[in-house]
C-alpha cells in the first residue's frame, strides 16, 4: 500500500457543536457558548484500493467523522480532499447533487433499520441509481441485477421486502445498494455488528472479495477489533475527537504504542486463557465540552499517566514505518523503541 495514490485526504478537520445558541444577554455580556469538540483536528489519508479501519469507543467522534466525510455535515474547519478536490467547500445541503456524490457511498450499521420496509430489494438498490445516475428502464434494471449478482443476492430475492429476508440477505441488499453506483470510497459503519458470527464470516469474505474485484477503498468503522484486524490494511484509533494512534494493522495489533490502544486490545474477549494481563480503564472519558487544550485527554483513565501529561497535549509522532502515536511517554523518534 506504500506507493498507492491518495484517494481521500482529511486535513486538520474539526467539528465543534455549539451547545445552545447563546441568548442575546450572553452575547452582550461576551459570554461564550460552550462547544462540544466532536472531531478536533483530525488528519489522515486513504490510498486508492486501501482499506482503513477506524476504531474507538462510542462517543469518540467516529460517527461525526463519518458524517463529515460522507458530507452530510459541514466541518467547522479543515479540508476533505477526495481525488484532489476539496469537498469541505461544498455545503452539505448541496452535496447531494454534487458530481462527486456517487463516488462516496455508505453501508449502514443495522440492515433492518436502514432499509425502507415498504421497498423491495429491487427498489432499494435502484433508488441511488435512479437519483444519482439518472438511470431508468432497461439500463436501470440491468445495473440493479449486476449489483445483486456482485453481492451474490439471488435474483429471486429482488422482489422481496426486508421482513421476508434473513439478516445476511438484508446485509447483502445494503451492500448492493452502496456499490451499485461504482463508488471509489465505501464507508462501512459496523456492517456486521447486527449479524451472527456465522453470517458475519460470509459477509466479511464478500467485502474482501468486492474490494479486490471493484478496486474500491474502504473506511471501516467498527468496535470489533478482531474484524478490523482481519479486513483492514491500516488502523486509526480515535479517542475523544482525536486520532491517538495510526499504523499498519499487523503492527498496531502486535505492538500497540498508545496506552489507550493497549487497553482496547486487552479488552477483546477470549484472551483469558492466554495469560495476558488485562488492562482495565477506570472511570469515564473527560467531557468533550471545551476540553483543556493543554492536557492529554486520556489522562484520568490512562493507567500510565504522569504529572507532565496534565500540562501538555500530545501530538502524533512517528514511532515506526507508517506508525504514529500521540503519547508523551513514548520515546522520542529515533530513540531505542
Amino acid at each position: 500500500m506504500t506507493a498507492s495514490s491518495t484517494l481521500l485526504a482529511v486535513e486538520g478537520v474539526r467539528k465543534l457543536f455549539p451547545l445552545g445558541r447563546g441568548g442575546v444577554l450572553d452575547r452582550l455580556r461576551g459570554r461564550r457558548v460552550p462547544l462540544l469538540h466532536a472531531v478536533d483536528g483530525v488528519d489522515f489519508r486513504i490510498g486508492a484500493g486501501e482499506s482503513v479501519g477506524l476504531v474507538g469507543e462510542s462517543g469518540c467522534g467516529k460517527s461525526t467523522l463519518v458524517r463529515l466525510i460522507t458530507r452530510t455535515l459541514d466541518p467547522t474547519e479543515g479540508a476533505i480532499r477526495f481525488d484532489g478536490e476539496d469537498l469541505a467547500r461544498i455545503p452539505a445541503r448541496q452535496f447531494a447533487s454534487a458530481p462527486q456524490r456517487p463516488g462516496i457511498q455508505m453501508v449502514f450499521q443495522d440492515p433492518t433499520d436502514s432499509l425502507n420496509p415498504r421497498h423491495t430489494s429491487r427498489d432499494a438498490i435502484a433508488e441511488p441509481l435512479r437519483r444519482l445516475a439518472g438511470l431508468s428502464g432497461r439500463a436501470l434494471a440491468e445495473r440493479v441485477e449486476e449489483a445483486a449478482a456482485q453481492v451474490q443476492l439471488p435474483e429471486a430475492l429482488l422482489g422481496r421486502y426486508p421482513h421476508q429476508l434473513s439478516g445476511g440477505q438484508k446485509a447483502r441488499v445494503g451492500i448492493a445498494r452502496a456499490i451499485a453506483l461504482r463508488p471509489r470510497l465505501l464507508v462501512l459503519d459496523e456492517p456486521t455488528a447486527a449479524l451472527d458470527v456465522s453470517v458475519q464470516a460470509v459477509i466479511l469474505h464478500l467485502l474482501a472479495d468486492l474490494k479486490t474485484r471493484l478496486g474500491m477503498s474502504y473506511l471501516f468503522v467498527s468496535h470489533d477489533l478482531d474484524v478490523v484486524r482481519l479486513l483492514c490494511d491500516r488502523v486509526l484509533v480515535m479517542y475523544l475527537g482525536r486520532i491517538v494512534e495510526e499504523g499498519p494493522a499487523g503492527e498496531l495489533f502486535a505492538l500497540p504504542r498508545h496506552p489507550y490502544t493497549r487497553a482496547l486490545l486487552s479488552a477483546i474477549p477470549g484472551q483469558a486463557g492466554a495469560g495476558a494481563q488485562r488492562i482495565r480503564l477506570e472511570g469515564d472519558p473527560v467531557s468533550p465540552v471545551d476540553p483543556d487544550p493543554k492536557r492529554c485527554r486520556f489522562l484520568g483513565r490512562c493507567p500510565e499517566g504522569e504529572a507532565a501529561c496534565a500540562s501538555a497535549s500530545p501530538v502524533l509522532l512517528e514511532c515506526g514505518p507508517g506508525h504514529r502515536a500521540a503519547c508523551l511517554r513514548l520515546p522520542p523518534p529515533g530513540g531505542a523503541g
Partner: peptide, 30 residues
C-alpha cells in the same frame, strides 16, 4: 469445549469466530 469440540456444529462455530484467526481466509463459514 474449546480444546476439543466434539460436535461438528461446535467446531464450526469456533472456526467462524474472528478472534484468533490469523487471516480472513482462515475464517470459515457455517
Amino acid at each position: 469445549l474449546f480444546a476439543k469440540p466434539r460436535h461438528p456444529y461446535t467446531a464450526r462455530l469456533v472456526a467462524t469466530t474472528p478472534h484468533g484467526a490469523q487471516s480472513l481466509s482462515a475464517l470459515a463459514a457455517i
